[in-house]
């Protein structure tokens, strides 16, 4: 028996909006610790990992580990039927071939019930090494979204150059070139507006904007985004780990005491000069 109740159903809507255009079929792994999902896009260039802790739910019961494989487009269509302020309840029986979604209106006078068919997915599961990244940039998520969108007008790839005092996002294409430079901010009253750079060495790497624009769909989940990267190592060195990790924390919207209840992490392989 599995049952998870989320008063802020809008969080699930935002999560689906953030992943459904990147991966179509994926499995939710449900355990007593929470719900998680990991899937690659069809070209195997990016991977999305979502985690929601059990204590982020208002009620959570998971008697045994379950894998709920489903089409995310279908799930998204059904989740869209919930109002933003609805409570969403996910229920699954043991060994069933479907899950039930209940949407409770705030005044509890209306309950909508939907069922979605489950799929048996033979998904490829990649082991993500526990790695330390040399460069971490924290910045406002809406600024990151804007930069990726604007630079897509110029070229297919963004080159991220990071030094201690700031980070530069640049793109070049047939029409010309463009760049945006962000300086690290002094400690401010508004942490959500701050740009923080933590680094061991300077870095310059290129990534496909098509994917970063997909990742930026998670912007409504979090005011800040964290980019983690490591620099290239010369040829002949042991295998480098220079994927870019774009991370959004998932918080509950408790204004007085917000707490992190999970995350979305996107991993993106770099573009490398031949």
């Amino acid at each position: 028996m599995f049952e998870a109740r989320l008063i802020q159903g809008s969080i699930l809507k935002k999560i689906l909006d953030a992943i459904k255009d990147l991966v179509t079929d994926a499995s939710w792994d449900c355990s007593p610790n929470g719900m998680s999902l990991q899937a690659m896009d069809t070209s195997h260039v990016s991977l999305v990992s979502v985690s929601l802790n059990s204590d982020g739910f208002d009620k959570y019961r998971c008697d045994r580990n379950l894998t709920l494989g489903m089409n995310l487009i279908s799930l998204s269509k059904i989740i869209k039927c919930a109002a933003n302020d609805d409570t969403i309840i996910i229920k699954a029986g043991d060994g069933g071939d479907k899950i039930t979604l209940l949407f409770e209106a705030q005044n509890e006078s209306e309950v909508a019930e939907y069922e979605i068919k489950l799929m048996n997915l033979d998904s490829e599961y990649l082991g993500i090494p526990d790695t330390t990244y040399n460069v971490t940039i924290k910045m406002p998520s809406n600024k990151f979204q804007r930069i990726c969108r604007d630079l897509s007008q110029i070229g297919d790839a963004v080159t991220i150059s990071c030094a201690k005092d700031g980070v530069r996002f640049g793109a070049a294409g047939d029409l010309g070139s463009g760049s945006i430079r962000l300086a690290q901010t002094a400690t401010s009253d508004k942490p959500e507006d701050s740009v923080t750079i933590s680094m061991q060495e300077a870095l310059c790497q290129s990534f496909a904007l098509k994917y970063l624009n997909h990742f930026a769909k998670a912007t409504p989940l979090s005011a800040q985004v964290t980019l983690s990267m490591s620099p290239d190592v010369p040829l002949g060195e042991p295998l480098l780990f220079n994927v870019c990790v774009v991370e959004y924390n998932i918080s509950d919207n408790d204004d007085e005491n917000p707490s992190t209840i999970g995350f979305i992490r996107y991993y993106l392989a770099p573009k490398i000069d031949d």
Binding site: V45, L47, Y125, L239
Partner: peptide, 14 residues
Amino acid sequence: TPLQKTLYTFFLKS
């Protein structure tokens, strides 16, 4: 044009 790497280069298939 730069080559697009895939994640198989970085992550272990498990």
